[in-house]
């Protein structure tokens, strides 16, 4: 672990970022303006990237920022603009049976939290010996992707191509 030497500092970072993320995530689904929601989504995605760095996966963190914040959010914003959502207040973004969704969400969180606390308890993230194996993360990731996981990688690239073509076919006017 890159920062494992100082667990306290790491924890401080974690909780500050996590609090911001939780807040932003809830704002994404409660705010009354779609563009604002997108901005809060950027916060969450950036937070996730930060958590990746805390978890010593800097390559994934970089990809997260590049792909999500750089591409996905921009795409979403384009979507917002193209569907002419008003840039001001959007009153009725929530449907009439939102309570059903709230119940589902709370129940899901309850079950997950219960089972996680029950099963993992206070188990440390850094089990013995795990630390040393994660040095040179990026190199290992590239080794894995272009070695053992080459076929899935290729399939995913074909999938992306397919999605690209599909998106064009769906969205173009003719």
């Amino acid at each position: 672990m890159v920062l494992a030497a100082d667990a306290f500092a790491q924890n401080v970072f974690f909780y500050v970022i996590a609090a911001a993320m939780a807040f932003s995530a809830i704002r994404v689904v409660t705010v009354k303006n779609v563009v604002h929601a997108a901005m809060y989504l950027v916060m969450v995605l950036a937070g996730v990237g930060a958590q990746f760095i805390l978890l010593a996966s800097e390559f994934v963190a970089a990809t997260q920022v590049l792909v999500y914040i750089g591409a996905v959010v921009v795409l979403v914003l384009f979507g917002v603009m193209l569907t002419r959502a008003k840039l001001g207040q959007d009153v009725n973004l929530t449907n009439d049976y939102w309570w059903l969704g709230a119940v589902a969400a709370v129940m899901i969180f309850g079950v997950m939290a219960y089972s996680l606390l029950d099963y993992y308890g206070d188990e440390p993230l850094d089990t013995a010996g795990a630390e040393s194996q994660l040095v040179d993360n990026t190199g290992q990731v590239s080794d894995a992707i272009f070695g053992q996981y080459l076929v899935p990688f290729e399939i995913i690239s074909v999938l992306l191509l397919g999605a690209l073509v599909g998106a064009i076919v769906l969205a173009r006017k003719d």
């Binding site: 449907n95 049976y97 969704g101 119940v103 079950v111």
Partner: peptide, 22 residues
Amino acid sequence: GKVQQYAAILFIASVVLAGTFI
């Protein structure tokens, strides 16, 4: 006919099932 309602019921049902198992 609203998919989201169906999905909500689906989620709730599966959570109840998962909770029961746990």
